[in-house]
């Protein structure tokens, strides 16, 4: 793409992308660290994640201020207009992802002294791994302005949903086997729900990137595959 005649405008747009990349990297890092703290039962690391969420929140405020100032002073048009609006939306999604990572870290603190059911932790680990891969891919799609890559992320969210569904069933079964498992299982269940929500925010970002690049919305509804809101396990 050609550069703007006004160099400082070009620089502000570049700064916006730099901030998004930085913020995204931080959200990614926190999600990984939060699960790590959970898995290794490391309250110190969990504390670190909770603390560093403040930096993510600050990024959101910075991006918001920059976008508002650019709208006021530059009156961006066409792809530039989409660029600044999209940055605002992505920052909001990343901020939510940061919150979800923080929530997982808090659960790590809560269950640091309980014994962990290994297979279930592994299941959650796979979910986190996939969520991180998706998040990284969507941030790449943004910086590369790659609508196809964004669409791939958008489609692959179904995998996270499928993992969540099966983990949900496993955790319910585990609780039914022994009521003493209910505490830890509930925390893991919420943890899994958080990761599933990270997937949803990543999907939002994918839609946003698609809009940025093509100027059109992703048309059909992504098949909803989180069925846990309608799932019950019978006692028979």
């Amino acid at each position: 793409m050609n550069e703007h005649i006004v160099t400082s405008y070009e620089e502000e747009l570049a700064l916006l992308d730099k901030k998004i990349a930085h913020m995204g990297g931080l959200a990614e890092h926190n999600l990984g660290q939060a699960f790590d703290a959970l898995e290794r039962r490391d309250p110190r690391q969990a504390e670190l994640v909770v603390k560093s969420d403040k930096a993510i929140d600050q990024f959101e405020r910075d991006i918001e201020a920059l976008v508002i100032s650019m709208i006021a002073r530059r009156q961006p048009m066409a792809n530039d207009l989409r660029h600044v609006m999209v940055a605002l939306r992505i920052a909001a999604d990343l901020e939510r992802i940061g919150d979800l990572a923080k929530n997982i870290a808090k659960r790590a603190l809560a269950i640091a002294h309980e014994s962990h059911p290994k297979p279930l932790m592994t299941g959650l680990g796979h979910m986190v791994e996939l969520a991180l891969k998706q998040l990284k891919a969507v941030l790449d799609a943004y910086s590369e302005r790659d609508a196809e890559k964004a669409l791939a992320v958008w489609r692959d969210d179904a995998q996270i949903d499928a993992m969540y569904n099966s983990l949900f069933r496993e955790l319910l079964t585990y609780m039914m086997e022994d009521p003493r498992n209910i505490g830890i299982s509930t925390h893991l269940l919420f943890g899994a729900k958080n990761v599933e929500r990270v997937g949803d925010h990543t999907t939002n970002i994918a839609e946003t990137v698609h809009y940025l690049v093509r100027g059109t919305n992703v048309a059909d509804d992504r098949p909803k595959s989180d069925q846990t809101s309608t799932t019950l396990i019978s006692h028979d």
């Binding site: 793409m1 050609n2 550069e3 006004v6 048009m77 066409a78 792809n79 207009l81």
Partner: peptide, 19 residues
């Protein structure tokens, strides 16, 4: 035209990339 023009020249002009 002002959010998603079809032609690159239109986009370059309205965004301040060509004079």
């Amino acid at each position: 035209i002002f959010t998603n023009p079809n032609d690159k020249r239109t986009q370059d002009y309205i965004t301040g990339r060509i004079g």
